[in-house]
Amino acid sequence: MIKYRFIITFGATLLFSCYSEKKKTTAESIRTQDFVSGKQVYDDFCINCHMVNGKGVPNIFPPLASSDYLMSKREESIRSIKYGLKGPIEVNGKKYNGVMAQQGLSNKEISDVMNYITNSWNNKNVELVTENEVSKVQQ
């Protein structure tokens, strides 16, 4: 009996973990339709590491979804996108020591993508980032 339960839960969890992403993205695209240009930048430059659901890859690429780093360190986040990020950081209590290269984005693209990622996957940010704000962030 226990064995059965094990197998069923196991199967269900596996299925769930692979398919859950799909449902969420449709809901998300409706909610974030105001951030199309930011989503475009994200799909172009960020998605292969931080993933379509913003959850990153365990131990390798930190999450942006519900990321305490992104949501509480606004200037550092802008700086990391503008100039790259290297060395130990902590995101939601987990340590990362990777490297994110500079992507060569314009200030406008950086403000767009910041507004998209801070308003997706349950993140909420009403104080939108402006191009001018990005231009003032120094290395």
Binding site: T9, T13, S17
Partner: peptide, 18 residues
């Protein structure tokens, strides 16, 4: 034991896709 196996399932489900 049961808790361990749930843990195991959770761990696997996080990593399987990646």
């Amino acid at each position: 034991l049961k808790n361990i196996s749930y843990f195991f399932i959770l761990f696997l489900s996080v990593t399987t896709c990646a």
